[in-house]
């Protein structure tokens, strides 16, 4: 009897140890690929980076040299368009959810729709943008009828909306009600109170959300494949196909030339540095306490 209990207790201890070991092992297995990706990216990318990368446009296939200057500028143009679409609508939606619609059925439905929209694959956004802007000859939107920077920007902008909207809402909900009441008690109209008191108090958090959305779409490739299309030459026109950093990385990664592979690695390093910087900044701001000024 006693020995039986001892065996049982030994088994339990062993199981506990095994579970701990497995949890540690899975943590290691998760961290390993990340470290592998980063080390390889830095090693490959840094050895391929040069001044030419930032100043020259791509050389024709097979020739060595050239850079991705046009793709970097193109990405900036696309992101400007997408931010102009995604950020105002997202913040407006967030303000509605937090300030006007709190607890209503409409707000719940919109919150749910935003979450679902967040999960729609990016390639589907590309198909939708194609059907909306690239293929019709006439539509309520400008620049229709052909591949254009504008269509790519719209696809990316739509993808930004849910992230911006939900973080804005979350940040506004953190603003204490006393702040709102104080503003209203002073006779400030509601819209003024929302914009220059509540939103202003939560603004570091809202900016964080925008950065997060920005970092996410900066690396998107799939929605650009048949909207922005890519371009071997300089172009900043919204009406023309435009180059983008992730698109160029994709094209070079699957090309047969070593020189283009090197450029792909360099481009990937530049892209990841931008994104990691954004994420780290976001983390720094949020860990400092977003609303320290308010409390």
């Amino acid at each position: 009897m006693r020995s039986e209990r001892k065996v049982w207790s030994r088994i339990r201890t062993l199981t506990d140890g095994a579970a701990t070991g497995l949890a540690v092992l899975s943590t290691v297995l998760v961290v390993a690929p990340l470290v592998a990706i980063f080390v390889y990216l830095i090693y490959k990318g840094a050895s391929s980076l040069s001044l030419d990368f930032f100043t020259k446009i791509p050389k024709p296939e097979g020739e060595s040299g050239g850079g991705m200057a046009n793709a970097i500028v193109g990405s900036a143009v696309l992101l400007a368009v997408s931010s102009a679409i995604g950020i105002p609508i997202g913040i407006g939606g967030g303000i509605f959810l937090a300030e006007f619609g709190r607890g209503t059925k409409l707000a719940n439905a919109i919150r749910f729709t935003a979450d679902v929209l967040n999960g729609v694959p990016s390639i589907v956004m590309g198909v939708a943008a194609y059907a909306l802007i690239v293929s019709p000859q006439k539509s309520f939107l400008p620049f229709t009828g052909h591949f254009s920077a504008f269509s790519g920007g719209v696809a990316l902008g739509i993808m930004m909306i849910p992230t911006v909207c939900r973080t804005t809402e979350e940040m506004l909900l953190m603003v204490p009600n006393a702040v709102r009441e104080a503003a209203l008690a002073l006779g400030v109209p509601n819209w003024r109170s929302v914009l220059s008191i509540t939103v202003k108090t939560a603004s570091p958090g809202i900016i964080t959300g925008c950065m997060l959305a920005f970092a996410r779409v900066a690396g998107e490739t799939a929605p650009l494949l048949f909207t922005a299309l890519g371009n071997q030459f300089w172009s900043t026109s919204l009406n023309e196909p435009i180059a983008a950093l992730p698109l160029q990385i994709y094209v070079y990664a699957i090309s047969p030339y070593d020189d283009q592979h090197r450029l792909a690695w360099a481009g990937a390093l530049v892209l990841i540095v931008l994104i990691v910087a954004a994420v780290a900044l976001v983390r720094y701001v949020t860990s400092r306490g977003v609303l320290k000024g308010a409390s």
Binding site: I95, F96, E99, F100, V127, A131, I158, L195
Partner: peptide
């Protein structure tokens, strides 16, 4: 005040509109 509220409602409703628009474009295509 009312105008501002409606503007925000419009932003929020546009999220619905986008999902409907994507669905209808895909169905049409």
């Amino acid at each position: 005040d009312k105008g501002f509220e409606w503007l925000m409602v419009l932003c929020a409703l546009s999220i619905f509109a986008i999902v409907v628009l994507i669905a209808s474009e895909l169905v049409k295509g």
